[in-house]
């Protein structure tokens, strides 16, 4: 028996991304040298949406790409083997750019650690920032997000599920937990 609780609905996700877009521009003092890299799968979707917002606000295109960090993970042997998603850098590359990594959920920080390693094999950005839709806490590494859609206190037994229209057919963030553990 799984208990589900919706914590962000479509409109809230939209507002969160808009806010992040403004934060990113403010922090960067404009869109110069910005490159968004989404971490597959849903991070890429979010990066694409964020890129669209930035383009709307600034009136000029902001490059968006994807960065798969699977082959840099330190926990491969603890998991069933994963397929590898494409890594696609925008034409201008990432050297001396300000790269904003985009992911859906920040949890242990291990994915971001792997992404930073992957990034360093691809080039040398001037700065790297991190934007996430949800920060659910429980970090295992000294990593923090620069831009957060929503801070979401969770227990370790809970699961955070991000659903996005382009991938899942609907926009929603929900927390799932096994009923027994909830009552405990």
């Amino acid at each position: 028996m799984t208990a589900r609780r919706t914590v962000l609905e479509a409109a809230e996700i939209r507002r969160a991304l808009t806010r992040i877009a403004h934060e990113v521009l403010e922090r960067n003092k404009g869109a110069d040298d910005l490159v968004l890299l989404g971490i597959p799968t849903r991070g890429v979707t979010l990066a694409t949406r964020l890129g669209r917002r930035l383009t709307e606000i600034e009136g000029r295109p902001v490059p968006v790409g994807s960065l798969d960090a699977t082959m840099y993970r330190d926990d491969l042997r603890r998991q069933p083997v994963r397929t590898i998603a494409p890594t696609e850098l925008p034409d201008g590359g990432i050297d001396d750019k300000v790269v904003v990594l985009v992911d859906d959920v920040l949890f242990s920080g291990r994915t971001i650690r792997a992404a930073l390693d992957a990034l360093s094999d691809l080039g040398r950005p001037r700065a790297v920032r991190l934007a996430v839709l949800v920060d659910r806490g429980h970090r295992e590494l000294p990593i923090r997000a620069d831009h957060v859609g929503k801070n979401l206190p969770t227990s370790l037994s809970e699961r955070v599920r991000v659903a996005l229209e382009e991938v899942d057919g609907t926009d929603e963030v929900r927390i799932e937990s096994d009923a027994a553990e909830v009552s405990a």
């Binding site: 597959p40 799968t41 849903r42 798969d68 699977t70 082959m71 993970r73 926990d75 491969l76 042997r77 603890r78 998991q79 069933p80 083997v81 994963r82 397929t83 590898i84 998603a85 859906d104 959920v105 949890f107 242990s108 291990r110 994915t111 659910r136 429980h138 295992e140 699961r159 955070v160 599920r161 991000v162």
Partner: peptide
Amino acid sequence: LYLLLAGARDLAPAGPPADEVALTE
């Protein structure tokens, strides 16, 4: 080699990468 050696189990892929891995640790 990746598919045979990288994972904990076998060549069968686990589907799309999970959004956060640590939760199944």
